[in-house]
Nucleic acid binder design. Structure first.
Lengths: 216, 216
DNA sequence: TTTAACTTGCACAAGTATGTGCAAGTTATT
DNA sequence: AATAACTTGCACATACTTGTGCAAGTTAAA
């Protein structure tokens, strides 16, 4: 006897839990110091109930960031391509499908105790970006007037800019997808027509490209 | 009798006031909700003294933002050039010299009662950017795959990205100056070599270009 | 229908932040 | 040296937020 004769969690409870996470994602994106009161209200619950699902505020935050980083990390799993330019665009493309996750983390990860956690969890992404740029500079496909590190940071920041832009001035899914890639390639040195050519020339980068199979 | 026989403000008082504004600028840049306690401490004063200079927290904020917007606006005064590309780069160049002012506003202006004030005060800048882009699209010098409004917003955001990058990973004054222009031109469609050519080709854009004369 | 899970409202403690009054001290200025 | 300006520390009121205990109600599930 131990975990065996415990009832399963009620259905509405798990729904409420999800609603809380959604609400948190929404509000924290705009104001990283949004109150639990506000979050609970947005989820249609009372503040008191929050503590039925999460130990405390940080616990909620942690779960948000953890699931976010996990999604992003797994989204990048199948990314590989000989041409570093296509690879970089591919990373941007995959990121686009996780917009919401990424945005929360961007806002939350800046300060607070979660910062180190976030950056650690996102390390694979940074590495992938850095490598693509490194290769790209090697082949001469990408600009060489900036050091890899700086260029990598600029690429990351720029991607976030597009995500924010899309949040405030809605963008069709396809348009957004295209814009992130366009901007990313722009940062690494491509002129707009060249960038578009790269995108149009690589089938992996088209909106309807096959995604990773979930073979579990 | 009235304002006549009032003594002049003491010298150390005005210094302290300035120190407060500087400290606020510094701390609020990193954390828009930094406490007055922290700001006062950074300025070498007690929290209580803050109220000797400003009516309240918002008053301090307002002054910060107001002087910031004023500096930026006046910095853009002499900006005019027939070639929209050069004009846009020129705007970026001028902005660079007001980095600190701009950054506070970027952080503070997002939410709060100051938001409308800030955007209003910065309207001239937005207009200048928009016009340059509009012209640039007209002559075919700038990308035409995005509507002016969106492109203008992306340009603004990108400029801020460079400013932030320079804050966290220091950048020589000259390098920063060049990078803002480079990134700005990149966003509007230029490849990196072309962007650099534009900058090198226009004497107004060189680091040591003559600034506006203060003829007062 | 009966049980256990879940939600709620209220009260309360604790922490943090802002804003003010006042008395006592320090310092620039005349 | 005298004065007014300025700073400071302290006390206090106010407000907002987080976290917890508990009793009473509501609802999904066996």
């Amino acid at each position: 006897m131990s975990t065996e004769n415990a009832r399963a969690p009620r259905r509405d409870a798990t729904e409420n839990r999800a609603a809380l996470l959604d609400a948190a994602r929404l509000l924290l994106n705009r104001d990283p110091s949004a109150s639990l009161e506000a979050i609970a209200a947005a989820a249609g619950l009372s503040r008191r109930s929050v503590y039925g699902h999460f130990a405390n505020r940080d616990d909620l935050l942690l779960e948000l960031v953890t699931s976010g980083t996990a999604r992003v990390a797994s989204a990048l799993e199948g990314v590989a391509h000989p041409d570093p330019t296509v690879r970089l665009a591919l990373i941007a493309s995959r990121l686009w499908r996780e917009v919401e996750s990424v945005r929360v983390m961007a806002v939350v990860a800046i300060r607070g105790p979660l910062a180190s956690h976030t950056t650690a969890a996102l390390a694979p992404v940074r590495t992938a970006v850095r490598e693509a740029i490194d290769d790209g500079q090697g082949t001469g496909a990408m600009r060489q007037d900036l050091p890899v590190e700086r260029l990598a940071r600029l690429v990351e920041e720029t991607a976030l800019v597009v995500l924010e832009e899309s949040a405030e001035h809605p963008l069709g899914a396809r348009d957004g997808h295209n814009l992130v890639m366009l901007m990313t390639l722009g940062v690494v040195g491509y002129g707009w027509r060249d960038a578009q050519s790269v995108i149009d020339g690589a089938p992996e980068l088209s909106w309807s490209a096959p995604q990773e199979e979930d073979a579990s």
